[in-house]
């Protein structure tokens, strides 16, 4: 019998019910010092396991867990309340500033209309004086024009210059400008790519939102484990899931490569980058 076969037998005897030791195993253990040592270690290990008593939870464990969960829930509720208060405050501020801007803008517009002989170059682009009679004016250029007339210059507001409202409006406008370009695709490949981007964006957002739900379940900190074998150069594997993950690495790696290959090489699925 070889050491490898002995190891397999030892592993099986540790995994399954205790069985009588075959004669060839006994012979090998008598001959091989290393395997005999392993067998003795396994016997000691099993004896040690039998001596172990089941852990008994300490008094008041359930109360402590319930208290901790309630405390966490309270903290989360307080955070949510603070967020709502901030959102309401921000919305009120925005509404107030918007109203002010529109009222002020309309007053300025009326003044401009009443002033005769104003050179055309001094007219504010987008303001009501620029509108063609009969056309339905868009509110956005009007509001933008009013903002310009009000002394607001896009891109000029800075976070620290004291005018936080102007900065917030500026940042908002910039954000509108930075929305993904939804230009119509010109080819089917572009269309498929666009669809892919949209779907992946949606999935990312859904996953981000889903993470807030996951926060409820806080992962347990794994107990620190000592080295499996003293002096071993590679880090020990902590549990069975690690060993399965390590074993499945060729499969998961290949799965990723297969998807890449499919997206890259199959005509119409993407670019040939």
């Amino acid at each position: 019998m070889s050491c490898e076969k002995f190891n397999a037998w030892l592993q099986e005897s540790l995994d399954g019910p205790s069985a009588a030791m075959p004669a060839e195993v006994q012979d090998h253990a008598a001959e091989c010092t290393g395997c005999r040592g392993l067998k003795e270690a396994a016997a000691k290990f099993e004896a040690g396991l039998r001596l172990l008593t089941s852990a008994v939870p300490g008094p008041g464990l359930s109360s402590r867990i319930v208290a901790a969960v309630l405390q966490e829930n309270m903290a989360r509720r307080r955070r949510r309340q603070r967020m709502w208060a901030m959102a309401v405050l921000a919305a009120s501020l925005l509404l107030a500033v918007g109203t002010l801007v529109v009222i002020r803008g309309s007053i300025l517009g009326q003044r401009r209309e009443s002033v005769a002989g104003v050179p055309s170059s001094s007219k504010v682009p987008g303001s009501r004086t620029d509108q063609t009679p009969g056309s339905k004016p868009s509110k956005l250029p009007q509001l933008f024009g009013d903002l310009v007339a009000f002394g607001f210059r896009p891109g000029a507001a800075k976070k620290d210059d004291g005018n936080r409202v102007a900065y917030a409006i500026d940042a908002g406008l910039q954000q509108i400008g930075s929305q993904p370009d939804n230009a119509a695709p010109e080819t089917v490949a572009e269309g498929i790519e666009g669809m892919g981007s949209l779907v992946s964006l949606r999935l990312r957002r859904t996953a981000d939102q889903g993470k807030t739900l996951l926060d409820i379940v806080t992962p347990m900190t794994p107990a620190s484990t000592g080295p499996l074998q003293p002096g071993a150069s590679s880090p020990p594997l902590t549990d069975a899931s690690d060993s399965v993950q390590a074993g499945l690495k060729p499969v998961t790696g290949s799965a990723r490569r297969a998807v890449d290959l499919f997206m890259r090489e199959v005509p119409g699925m993407g670019s040939d980058k």
Binding site: A232, S243, G247
Partner: peptide
């Protein structure tokens, strides 16, 4: 998997050997 087993050692090799079974 065999290639990975040959290039690993210690606890990782033991776990991989068991996985391969």
């Amino acid at each position: 998997l065999q290639h990975n087993l040959e290039s690993s050692e210690g606890g990782e090799a033991a776990a991989l050997r068991n996985f391969i079974r």
